[in-house]
Design a protein around this nucleic acid. Structure first.
Ligand SMILES: NC(=O)c1ccc[n+]([C@@H]2O[C@H](COP(=O)([O-])OP(=O)(O)OC[C@H]3O[C@@H](n4cnc5c(N)ncnc54)[C@H](O)[C@@H]3O)[C@@H](O)[C@H]2O)c1
Ligand SMILES: NC(=O)c1ccc[n+]([C@@H]2O[C@H](COP(=O)([O-])OP(=O)(O)OC[C@H]3O[C@@H](n4cnc5c(N)ncnc54)[C@H](O)[C@@H]3O)[C@@H](O)[C@H]2O)c1
Lengths: 209, 209
DNA sequence: GGGGGCTTGTGAATTCATTCACAAGATAGG
DNA sequence: CCTATCTTGTGAATGAATTCACAAGCCCCC
């Protein structure tokens, strides 16, 4: 659908719009204008319309957008109409928090496997799922393909685990390790670096008059 | 120090450069060029030099940068020469993972208080710190000021908790709740929205040929 | 059925970020 | 001391993202 490359900032905003639309839907609104969406998200109406225009034409002039219809379109554009099969590798502090996170499941990201290398953890159940040995990933993925691997192992192990996951044939990766990871061009990698976020905050706090 | 507003993307890269410099330092290198820094971080040498130039002149022409010296400068620019006093509000799954996260402490973000509203949690110890009632924040902050509050409560409670934290006089906030929060202009807010990160991944995976 | 009041969709203008390209220093070696 | 070789620091050029501004379309009401 998108004719030209879509900027990352645009995708982030689409994700926000979807959340606002769901709020509006829950509040019983059937119609919404670009102005109202913009006000809710701290942006401008022109920005909203421009963002949407990359994907087509969704509103009615003079009227605005049908909330239900636009919600549906956003879901389709973001790829949220299907379920995603997700595994988590590294069932430590953050890995087990993620395994239990409802916000994950709610949007169709279904956690279908947990993996670790620590013999003490393998075999334990974490919220109805057994922790499996990391070596099993390749075969498990062959039997029942996985869409996304969430990496929550220590930074020192992260590149090796990423290589294993890629070798197993998984092409979507979300990492929480605070390091620069390398993947082949056909694999999509998204890193959430909390250290960087903290440092951003530190910078902002330091440079206020 | 910075004469004009610094772009967010620049600050993110500074944070990366710092990590790479520390690696180089550990590897025993004393000198590094913008080219080497760029190669490590997947950017260009012009970008590295431009980023640094906002803050001054750190290198020697023909030679490059002194690793130790530039590391120091990056720390100063990012505000990492001091310790930051951090509290965590909401000691649930993600809150307790964060409370135990060494990556936090390592860069001088010292967790000095844990708060929750659940009577069943209040009084418990989580890694040597007692969980305190949220009502105590205002007084605690008066006695010993806090720099940063990490918000890890459910989305439905987040705005109310942010208001309490702001009322207590804390001016740096990092939130993990997947919603748009509102703070006065003199408070710096940074939101890590994992739902959005997942949706970005979903979008990328859906729109690959 | 025509006019007034809205709001979209989108080229054009502007602002912001990145890349280019080169003069200015610095070093090393003869 | 002079030349050859590096690499920085930075204006200028390019490219990307946001904002402006308005014609086109839709609804409602008279
Ligand atoms: N804890 C946090 O709040 C937090 C926050 C942000 C980022 N992170 C990052 O997330 C990662 C995990 O942090 P954590 O605090 O959960 O650490 P942790 O030590 O609690 O958990 C790491 C887990 O990974 C497993 N593991 C180690 N090597 C492995 C391998 N080769 N294959 C499979 N599993 C392996 C360990 O057995 C352990 O269960 C780190 O990179 C950390 O920097 C953590
Ligand atoms: N679990 C995850 O992996 C994860 C990942 C990303 C984002 N988040 C977000 O982080 C937040 C917390 O998630 P969680 O999974 O840890 O939830 P949780 O239910 O495990 O923990 C929430 C904690 O907040 C406390 N709380 C509730 N209301 C409060 C109030 N008014 N004042 C103080 N404390 C209060 C609760 O008692 C509980 O201890 C949510 O907004 C969630 O969307 C969680």
């Amino acid at each position: 659908m998108p004719l030209k490359r879509i900027a990352d900032s645009t995708v982030r905003r689409l994700s926000l719009y979807l959340r606002f639309l769901e709020e509006f839907e829950n509040a019983g609104l059937t119609t919404v204008s670009s102005d109202e969406l913009a006000a809710r998200g701290g942006t401008t109406s022109a920005q909203v319309r421009k963002d949407l225009s990359f994907f087509g034409s969704f509103g009615k002039r003079g009227l605005g957008y049908q909330v239900a219809e636009l919600t549906q379109s956003m879901r389709r554009i973001l790829g949220l109409e299907r379920d995603w099969r997700v595994i988590i590798v590294g069932i430590g502090k953050i890995g087990s928090a993620l395994a239990q996170y409802e916000g994950f499941q709610q949007r169709g990201f279904r956690v279908v496997g947990l993996y670790d290398s620590d013999p003490a953890k393998i075999g334990r159940e974490v919220y109805n799922l057994p922790v499996l040995p990391i070596e099993a990933i390749a075969e498990d993925n062959r039997e029942r393909p996985v869409d996304i691997a969430v990496i929550a192992v220590p930074a020192s192990a992260a590149q090796r685990v990423v290589d294993q996951v890629v070798a197993a044939g998984i092409t979507g990766i979300m990492s929480f390790a605070p390091i620069q990871l390398h993947v082949p061009a056909d694999v999509t990698l998204n890193t959430v670096n909390m250290a960087m976020e903290l440092e951003r905050l530190s910078f902002a706090l330091s440079n206020r008059e």
